[in-house]
């Protein structure tokens, strides 16, 4: 320890680094692409650390299973459990869709609605956060997990992907204070925004007073925010606070997802409003060949997909053929 050498740092370097940091903060806030790439690149290393820390837990679980008498039976049970979870996750939307499709088919000539692809992911760690509303999963870019993808469990919506690196992704839970999603209020058909509070409660403010809703009613995703597909259960109303002077009420709800015991989650990897797969597109074309695309040379992009789903299905098919 060379105490008598003065290693006084240069002020220039400090200022340069300070300017770089402030620029980085602003660009991060704006959401520039190369900053998020930097975040993802370095995030791969730190996710590795998170995974390594979590390794003893995984190993302990592995050792525990070793001592179980019928360990292969155990594995079989776990496999079936995963399969069951996958199916239940897909079913959640299916029930709501079924009802809706029946209704719509009668009126229109049918609307091409596909069940999005889901991916089973295991929770691998917990990055530190103020309220513990983040967790990391073991699936990343390689499995087509993108920031903004919805995450559900067997019971309902869990949250969204916040950041995905090559081998893992960070999920923000819907109870986080930074998370808002659009929901339908029970059977009323009204939509509102449901906001996380940091603890277990979710709050929907400024709901018109005459809305026919009571404790126990289910709130499900509306699909308006284009982040979540329509029809997934989100929360159950636990309390209604009157605000008579304003003519509005405030709903307190609790998420239906089992956030306390998340071990496996499902990531919905297919964006709800993206053009459907070539395979499913050809199916929908077979079923509904009536609507032809208005302009054939026009490539299918997101805006047309939102406007004319059946038409984009047709263009998608011609693109692939």
């Amino acid at each position: 320890m060379a105490l008598f050498d003065s290693h006084r740092p240069g002020l220039n370097l400090l200022l340069v680094l300070a300017v770089i940091s402030i620029a980085l903060m602003s660009l991060d806030r704006i959401g520039t692409r190369w900053v998020s790439q930097l975040d993802q690149g370095l995030g791969g290393a730190t996710d590795g650390i998170v995974k390594a820390i979590h390794q003893p837990v995984v190993m302990a679980r592995g050792v525990g299973q070793w001592f179980v008498e019928h360990s292969d039976l155990q594995a079989e049970v776990e496999r079936l459990h995963e399969e069951n979870m996958l199916l239940r996750g897909q079913m959640q939307q299916f029930v709501a869709l079924q009802r809706e499709v029946d209704e719509l088919r009668a009126m229109l000539d049918g609307e091409a609605s596909t069940i999005p692809g889901v991916l089973l992911a295991r929770r691998v760690g917990h990055p530190p956060s103020l309220h513990g509303n983040l967790f990391t999963i073991g699936r990343g870019h390689g499995d087509d997990v993108r920031p903004g993808d919805p995450v559900i469990d067997a019971y309902g919506v869990v949250g969204q992907i916040l950041r995905s690196t090559r081998s893992g992704a960070t999920v923000i839970q819907l109870t986080s204070r930074d998370h808002i999603l659009s929901v339908i209020l029970g059977d009323t058909g009204r939509t509102t925004l449901l906001r996380g509070t940091g603890n277990r409660q979710l709050i929907a403010e400024r709901v018109p007073e005459r809305t026919a809703i009571e404790p126990g009613d289910l709130l499900s995703t509306s699909g308006i925010d284009t982040a979540f597909p329509r029809g997934y259960p989100v929360a159950r109303v636990t309390d209604i606070e009157m605000d008579e002077a304003q003519g509005f009420i405030r709903l307190i709800a609790e998420p239906v997802a089992d956030l306390e015991r998340l071990d496996h989650v499902l990531v919905i990897t297919e964006a709800p409003d993206a053009p459907p797969d070539p395979s499913s597109a050809s199916d929908s074309v077979l079923e509904h060949p009536t609507i032809t695309p208005p302009t054939d040379g026009h490539t299918a992009d997101e805006s047309t997909a939102a406007d004319v789903p059946a038409a984009t299905g047709a263009t998608g098919a011609t693109d692939d053929d």
């Binding site: 740092p9 370097l13 400090l14 680094l17 300070a18 770089i20 940091s21 402030i22 620029a23 980085l24 903060m25 660009l27 991060d28 806030r29 900053v35 930097l38 975040d39 370095l42 995030g43 290393a45 730190t46 650390i49 998170v50 990055p127 530190p128 956060s129 983040l134 916040l162 950041r163 960070t170």
Partner: peptide, 27 residues
């Protein structure tokens, strides 16, 4: 200073914080 800056940046990335905040303060 550069070491401190990189360490702060890694912390920002690891904790999903605002990128550059801890980098600045560490420096």
């Amino acid at each position: 200073l550069i070491y401190a800056w990189i360490a702060g940046l890694m912390l920002d990335v690891a904790t999903n914080g605002l990128l550059g905040l801890n980098a600045l303060l560490f420096t």
